[in-house]
Amino acid sequence: MAVDTDTVRRIAMLARLNVPEDELDGLAGELNKILDWMDLLNGADTDGVAPMTAVKPMPLRQRADAVTEGGIAEDLVANAPEAAGAFFAVPKVIE
């Protein structure tokens, strides 16, 4: 399972993580080591085994349809790096 620097660059882009070019190689090596170790899992026979979804089987709890929250725009933008009134502001997006 070889991860090369191109793969690291692609994953970093997917994860929106700036990785300096000179770190790509080292990271590829580290990821390969970790992924090789993950290959241990192939030794486990999981045929017909369902993936685990909950510690205690229980139904998904559901909420009543009622408006119980809102009206906290000021709180929400209080921690924002940049706001325009009650809006969050980000560098211009071109669609």
Partner: peptide, 12 residues
């Protein structure tokens, strides 16, 4: 190969 396999191993 990874996430799903790991969740199955988790069941085991």
């Amino acid at each position: 190969a990874y996430y799903l396999k790991a969740q199955k191993v988790r069941t085991l």
